[in-house]
Design a protein around this nucleic acid. Structure first.
Length: 274
DNA sequence: CGTAGACCCTGCGCGC
DNA sequence: TGCGCGCAGGGTCTAC
């Protein structure tokens, strides 16, 4: 479900309501996520700690608390992180809940269980195995056409898979990879070995644009994505190709095509993507 | 080494 | 109405 914009939207909606509050309790109802939830470690690192700040790295949400600990949450495909009233009824697939001093409850639901929740020392985050190999943030200034071109050197394969490789750039998932390539006019199957410098620049700009616009619009709600307040986003109405097979390309009017790459659907326009 | 594909899991929408 | 199938926003492991 969530790519970079959706995680960022959750972060922004959560931040003003969480910072300054204190975790008072932890309930793990179902530890079965992508990696088993370590209840004791979460309890030790989080309970009775004040929330200092919320950050995001790639598609991971980071909640720093007092005492040099960080709660790391990944939403996988179907994870939803919401802040509800403390007495709100438990919902299906509510894996864990953190009670807050203010009376609220931070709830993580994840039907498909591809998500993650764990806690580590804040200072050890960068070296953690989940983060050590990650590439640059697409919205950082350090990410530019040159960075992409260097990453592509000596590599083969289609540009769409390349764009979704977290070692190259983080946060670009299946929706926004298709959208960015359409905006840049690049065919998703084009080999990374056959992309000129100028087109890498265009692609970087397209990524920045589409990700920023999606954040502004509250993310893409195709099915069930919501921010921490349970509100959906609106960027789905601005999607130009994703999930629009057979409908007209907004630029040239030709029918949008769907192909499968690495077992994931790719949408593109055969007319204006080369 | 890099890349392509399978796989983890549940829910939903569709066609029959 | 009910059932089976295909598909879904991510990441990782294996086989080549």
């Amino acid at each position: 479900m969530p790519e970079l914009p959706e995680v960022e939207v959750v972060r922004r909606s959560l931040e003003p309501r969480l910072v300054g509050d204190t975790f008072r309790s932890l309930t793990v109802r179902d530890p079965r996520l992508r990696e088993p939830v370590d209840r004791a470690n979460l309890e030790r690192r989080l309970v009775e700690r004040e929330v200092l700040r919320l950050r995001r790295r790639a598609k991971y949400l980071l909640v720093d608390v007092a005492g040099d600990s960080t709660l790391v949450i990944h939403l996988g495909m179907s994870g939803r992180l919401t802040l509800v009233a403390g007495e709100a009824p438990v919902e299906p697939h509510e894996h864990l809940a953190l009670g807050l001093a203010s009376g609220g409850r931070l709830r993580l639901r994840d039907p498909r269980r591809f998500g993650l929740a764990f806690a580590v020392a804040t200072g050890a985050l960068a070296g953690d195995r989940h983060f050590a190999h990650l590439g640059p943030e697409p919205l950082d200034a350090a990410f530019d056409g040159g960075a992409l071109a260097r990453a592509a050197r000596g590599r083969r394969g289609p540009v769409k898979s390349f764009l979704m490789d977290g070692r190259v750039v983080v946060g670009v998932g299946n929706i926004y990879a298709s959208e960015a390539l359409h905006r840049a006019g690049i065919h998703p199957r084009r080999s990374v070995a056959r992309i000129a410098a100028r087109r890498w620049d265009l692609l970087v700009e397209a990524c920045r644009e589409v990700l920023s616009e999606a954040i502004e619009r509250g993310g893409t709600t195709l099915n069930d994505f919501t921010n921490a307040d349970g509100e959906g986003g609106w960027f789905q109405v601005s999607l130009r190709v994703y999930d629009r097979e057979g409908r007209p390309c907004p630029r040239c009017g030709r029918a949008i095509l769907r192909i499968v790459q690495s077992n994931r659907s790719t949408y593109y326009c055969g007319g204006c993507q080369r």
